[in-house]
Nucleic acid binder design. Structure first.
Length: 474
RNA sequence: CGGGGUGUGGCUCAGUUUGGCUAGAGCACUUGAUUUGGGAUCAAGGGGUCGGGAGUUCGAAUCUCUUCACCCCGACCA
């Protein structure tokens, strides 16, 4: 049976994307311009992401806090580069109740300023350091064009803000959290992302430097999914975060921040999903197994429930679908929703002593003996699906990663089948801008740990400084 | 911010060019029956100030003006 109106992704990728969002009931457009409603299926993915990341943050010593959502203009302005970067997309509150405010307040676009202001009053001694805080919240950036999960005016995210006694410690923190993101992408989202440093032009407003986690979507466009910034003492000087160091001298703290957003849901769609709807890696799927009894015979339903209990008892999230829909409808629905494994169970199976398992990624069915260790079989299948999705994504990424030695080669790649392009760069912003003229090709990151592929810049031919990963961007 | 497009039951749309009976269809929904191995069938039923405002007219979903919203493609950003 044909799926309901999901566009072919090779024909119109953007349309396909929104079709999947709708078909899988992840989000709905709201009547608030540029904002979406997270529907249960979409929000559940975010909750799962939160729970995994939150655990990883706690394991690396972080604690959660919550800051105000409003930032008085004067506070926001203390550090010059940040306000310059964010002012064009701030939403401002100018009224409270019936009266005008003396000073307008921004709805937070990011919370460096609030954390810095707070820290400045709390830190006295090196003994107070480090402070390793994170907050889960939403932020607002007044975007003009929006797409569900990828760009909305309000989005959910996590922002870590830490302060340290030494530069070394802060720099280590920057890398540590970058690697947490990378690990999360590899182990849970089954996305082989690439990490590296942003160029001066692309770094976060106000940062000394920015590291990024970059993923390649199925259509060859790059998506930035998580950044980690080292601020040095820029904010601590602007916001006066001082401590008495071990030599009894005043010193400014060294600071980091790092964040990732609900955009990751968009990445999951654009990396793994297909014309049959959403595909979710089992380790991030809010519901891993759907059990579909066929018919309403007591024997069938009882067996379905007992399998469900066994799975749940072994930390597999499963459920029995007893809704009054036809089996075919349920098959299609759980498929479009991306549930990794479906168990089909009818009289026919019981008579022949088997249970049918269907996997979402390949849409294959296998039958197992009704007396087998069903928990083990399902665990194995889930593991298989997780690995298969990662390997497929890796293969796709590698097949769309190219090397270029001159600008003509870059043009050719970006104009035929875009992807990641590895090419040398002299470090000059003019050359970066030149690349942007090719369908908006941007530097994704500097690949610090890879060998040079050439000794001259891909654009100007002068001596090259860095190997850079380039790509089109969402 | 430029360019293009769309607003009609919950959803997708027809009807607008050429104003005219009581505004339609499919899907969805409700009830009942029969069904159930890839989006079931039959029957009955509910649901609309045609995005908002102003105007032209005997008469407006349809024409004019105005406004709002959303979508797609570019420039800027997670």
């Amino acid at each position: 049976m044909k799926n309901k109106a999901i566009t072919d992704r090779s024909v119109d990728f953007a349309k396909w994307y929104t079709d999947v969002v709708k078909a899988a009931k992840l989000a709905e457009y709201s009547n608030v311009k540029g904002c979406i409603v997270f529907e249960p299926n979409g929000y559940a993915i975010w909750e799962k992401m939160q729970s995994v990341l939150d655990r990883m943050f706690k394991e690396t010593g972080h604690q959660n806090v919550y800051m105000p959502m409003f930032i008085p203009e004067s506070l926001l302005k203390k550090e010059g580069e940040l306000i310059e970067g964010f002012a064009p997309e701030c939403a401002w509150v100018t009224q409270g109740g019936t009266g005008c405010l003396d000073e307008r307040m921004a709805v937070r676009p990011t919370s460096e300023t609030l954390f810095s202001d707070y820290y400045s009053s709390k830190i006295n001694s090196y003994r107070d350091l480090p402070k390793l805080y994170n907050q889960w919240c939403s932020v607002v950036r007044w975007e003009k064009e929006t797409r569900p999960f990828l760009r909305t005016r309000e989005f959910l995210w996590q922002e870590g803000h830490t302060i340290h006694e030494t530069q070394k410690e802060a720099e280590e923190e920057t890398i540590r959290m970058l690697e947490v993101y990378k690990k999360f992408f590899h182990d849970y989202l089954a996305i082989p992302s690439i990490i590296g440093r942003k160029t001066e032009k692309e770094k976060f407003a106000g940062a000394e430097y920015t590291y990024t986690n970059e993923a390649l979507m199925y259509n060859g466009v790059a998506l930035q999914c998580g950044t980690s910034h080292y601020f040095g003492q820029k904010f601590s000087k602007a916001y006066n975060i001082k401590f008495l160091n071990r030599n009894n001298q005043w010193e400014y703290v060294y600071q980091t921040s790092w964040g990732t957003t609900t955009r990751m849901i968009g990445a999951l769609i654009m990396v793994h999903s297909d014309e049959n709807g959403l595909v979710l890696p089992p380790r991030i799927a809010p519901r891993q197994v759907a059990i579909v009894p066929i018919g309403t015979d007591e024997e069938v339903v009882t067996l379905a429930k007992s399998i469900n209990e066994k799975l749940n008892a072994n930390n597999i999230v499963s459920f029995v679908d007893l809704t009054e829909k036809s089996p075919g409808f349920k098959f299609a629905e759980h498929e479009v929703n991306g549930i990794p494994v479906r168990i089909e169970l009818g009289k026919r199976d019981i008579e022949s002593g088997v249970v049918t398992l269907a996997r979402r990624d390949t849409r294959e069915r296998i039958t197992v003996d009704v007396n087998c260790d069903i928990v083990k079989e399902v665990e194995k299948l889930l593991e298989d699906i997780q690995n298969n999705l990662y390997n497929k994504a890796l293969e796709r990424r590698d097949s769309l990663t190219f090397e270029a030695h001159n600008i003509e080669e870059v043009e050719k790649i970006m104009n035929t089948q875009p992807g990641f392009v590895k090419a040398m760069w002299c470090g000059d912003e003019a050359c970066e801008l030149k690349m942007k003229e090719i369908r908006g090709t941007k530097s994704r990151c500097i690949l610090e740990n890879e060998k040079a592929i050439d000794d001259k810049c891909v654009v100007c031919g002068k001596k090259a400084k860095h190997l850079v990963l380039w790509g089109l961007q969402y």
